[in-house]
Design a protein around this nucleic acid. Structure first.
Lengths: 136, 136
DNA sequence: TTCTTGACTTAGACTCCGTCCATCGTAGGA
DNA sequence: TCCTACGATGGACGGAGTCTAAGTCAAGAA
């Protein structure tokens, strides 16, 4: 994750303790935290950090393409740091748990030009839904 | 849409003017209204209708499988009455417009058992994103 | 090293979307 | 026609996220 900190510094980010802590919290595999969970974990290391800062930092990381926002349902968005390896998501309909998955095939290729209605289509997100082992 | 009203009556729905109006508002192709838009349109015909009733009725239609809930982004959910023809959605990243699309291929078949992690996977939603002709 | 400045952070008010609840109204069967 | 359980109402409530005004501080300049 120091890679990430380096990349951010290279993009002109002012490196503050808050940003460092948020980036560190997101470090790790297959972690899909909500903004509030990120805030709670960040606050363990930096008790004064505010919710607004966490939201700001997450938003910046998303717009830089370093983190992916996953809208699970009506619930809170989750943040996925695994942004540099293309993948899709498997969501538990009951508890909201998210896993990264790697389907075969390319969904973008499955959308014929006639079905694009003049849109400049740039992305296809696949969300698989079902019950996780604990909820089934 | 009188089909829909018939089906609902057949399922034991008490037919009230509010439910009738909500069902009628959702009538039509390729309409993807938010709950507030449904409420606004319903209120043109039935000014006293309450937001709670619109939410209740939409929720019932969704759980009966007559309408699909589309979570486009962080914004309000949209309601898609085209529930009896399998399809996916194409969303404009700028203005949020939604279109129904019909890709080839079956995304569920693209998820190998080894990538299901013990989930009982029942559904695959594909959301294509890009810019619509007006926003491009 | 100190100064300077504008980018960053903070707390809390606010908005938006949706749900809940107590009460009232009414569809439809007897 | 009457009854009653199902449905509607509207206002309070809650969670998630945004905004704002004021204070703070990282990092370049001198």
């Amino acid at each position: 994750m120091s890679d990430l900190l380096e990349r951010l510094r290279g993009r002109g980010w002012r490196m503050t303790s808050q940003r460092r802590v948020v980036a560190e919290v997101l470090d790790g595999d297959h972690v899909h935290l909500t903004a509030d969970e990120v805030h709670a974990r960040a606050a363990q290391r930096l008790p004064e950090i505010s919710r607004a800062t966490v939201y700001n930092t997450l938003g910046e990381l998303v717009s830089l393409g370093e983190v992916i926002e996953v809208a699970t349902d009506g619930r809170a968005k989750r943040y996925d740091p695994n942004a540099h390896h293309p993948h899709q998501h498997l969501v538990c309909s009951r508890c909201g748990t998210v896993r990264d998955v790697h389907p075969t095939g390319d969904p973008l290729a499955d959308l014929p030009t006639a079905e694009r209605f003049g849109f400049m289509v740039s992305q296809a997100e696949v969300t698989y839904r079902g019950l996780c082992p604990s909820c089934a």
